[in-house]
């Protein structure tokens, strides 16, 4: 997998974890199951460590995309970008270097990750 894509995916997973952890409704439901959530500051430092691994240009794209859409990578499932639900052109969708090169959705600009490669 492309190293920058790997960092972006890890960051997006961490952001999702942070969002879920801060959601009062979810926190209440998880609490009832015996799943406690605290120490959010440790996640913030993991996030900062990952951000430092991004190249300056991807870091600025990441910051803009997170502010605007809350994410920067969209999964591709069955040839469809799961951010905008537009079909990926077949030349890209069938490329040998999917996930090893960086591809962006021509419609929404998200970086693409083929889940079931």
């Amino acid at each position: 997998m492309n190293p920058q894509l790997r960092v972006l995916i890890a960051l997006q997973d961490i952001l999702l974890l942070l969002r879920d952890a801060r959601d009062p409704g979810q926190k209440r439901v998880l609490g009832k199951m015996g799943l406690k959530i605290n120490k959010l500051e440790t996640l913030e430092s993991t996030k900062a460590d990952l951000e430092r691994q991004l190249s300056p240009s991807i870091l600025s794209q990441y910051r803009r995309a997170i502010q605007r859409h809350g994410r920067i990578v969209a999964p591709v499932i069955k040839s469809v970008c799961c951010q905008c639900f537009v079909r990926i052109p077949s030349a890209i969708d069938s490329a040998e270097d999917r996930n090893t090169s960086l591809y962006r959705c021509e419609n929404c600009g998200m970086y693409l990750y083929w889940v079931d490669k």
Binding site: I14, G34, L40, L43
Partner: peptide
């Protein structure tokens, strides 16, 4: 990736219920 996210989740509090 999954392992890293799981370890990050465990840092928030154990999932041992």
């Amino acid at each position: 990736t999954v392992l890293r996210t799981l370890l990050a989740r465990e840092e928030l509090g154990s999932t041992g219920i």
